[in-house]
């Protein structure tokens, strides 16, 4: 192989890596440049006192606080729904399901993981329309519908990370407790789950990040541009990613646009924190890249 050919390939390869890296850093730098200046407490809380706002003593009408609070509430609700079901299903996959059943269940989880989030949003929307027509005439797209839909969205991550964390425990560890008279369930609860906890936790943290960033699901299931901090599960709510989307198409003046940049920075920071945490908890963060949004 001639020298220039090898050299070209190497240069191309370095160029690809460098180009992509600079694009990403350029994006982040651009957001910092445009957004950092306008980032302030006033931007978040408008004219309401910080303590009053956080304790929900006063309604914050402007500012980013309602969107930030909405995102946090939404994440807590969806992850609260998805974690128990997902972890239990993951345990079933790793410790009980065998053969054809395991294959079939895995196939469904793969589909669930790959269905576009807008389709899951559409599912949430039609669920609320259906319930509205049949059992609950007062039900409209709302916080609870979004939380349910997002729970469906992140279920496969939690299931798979639980399953893989359990399956990677070596046989020599698996037999310790049974040799001491443990039942299968005791072995799972006392030895295997604690041993797999970092992997399971890593999956949960990634699910949190997914819930915080998703826009397509919530725009169909109840997110609105202005609602204040929502006080009920059955009302519309504000959320950061939807706010960013809304600003990008509907901003009226430079001040609103600046809010959009600031909101992007805050969302980026929130996701970076969760991503970093899961990075530390488990090196297997790469599974997200493969399973991801």
């Amino acid at each position: 192989m001639t020298g220039w050919f090898s050299k070209t390939i190497r240069i191309f390869s370095w160029a690809c890596g460098m180009a992509f890296t600079s694009i990403i850093f350029f994006f982040i730098g651009y957001l910092l440049y445009r957004g950092a200046g306008s980032l302030s407490l006033k931007l978040i809380f408008e004219n309401t006192g910080v303590i009053d706002a956080v304790l929900l003593r006063k309604q914050v009408l402007g500012g980013l606080f309602p969107a930030i609070a909405g995102t946090i509430i939404l994440v807590l609700l969806s992850v609260g729904i998805a974690v128990p079901i997902g972890v239990a299903a993951g345990i079933h996959m790793a410790e009980y399901a065998r053969g054809r059943w395991k294959e079939a269940l895995g196939f469904f989880f793969d589909i669930l993981a790959s269905v576009p989030s807008i389709v899951i949003g559409l599912f949430g929307l039609s669920l609320s329309v259906y319930l509205h027509r049949t059992f609950f005439p007062k039900l409209y797209p709302s916080l609870i519908i979004s939380a349910l839909s997002l729970a469906v969205l992140v279920l496969p991550y939690i299931i798979r990370s639980t399953q893989y964390a359990l399956e990677s425990i070596p046989e020599s560890t698996r037999i310790i407790a049974p040799a001491l008279g443990a039942s299968r369930l005791q072995n799972i609860l006392y030895v295997l789950i604690p041993r797999a906890s970092s992997g399971i936790l890593g999956g949960i943290v990634l699910a949190v990040g997914r819930c915080a960033e998703d826009t397509a699901v919530i725009m169909l299931t109840g997110a609105v541009a202005f609602a204040g901090v929502s006080r009920s599960l059955f009302s519309g709510y504000e959320a950061l990613p939807f706010y960013i989307y809304y600003i990008s198409s509907q901003y009226a003046d430079p001040a609103e646009l600046a809010e959009g940049y600031a909101a992007s920075l805050i969302l980026l920071a929130i996701c970076a924190v969760f991503f970093g945490v899961s990075f530390i908890i488990q090196k297997g963060v790469e599974s997200r890249a493969l399973y991801g949004p």
């Binding site: 990040g209 960033e213 960013i244 990008s248 959009g260 980026l268 996701c271």
Partner: peptide
């Protein structure tokens, strides 16, 4: 380093890519 950058990039919210896309 590059591996970390690419992994980090998978964690950036899509809406932010869109936002930067519109204005940049």
């Amino acid at each position: 380093f590059f591996r970390a950058v690419f992994l980090m990039a998978t964690g950036i919210p899509t809406v932010i890519y869109g936002f930067v896309g519109i204005f940049l």
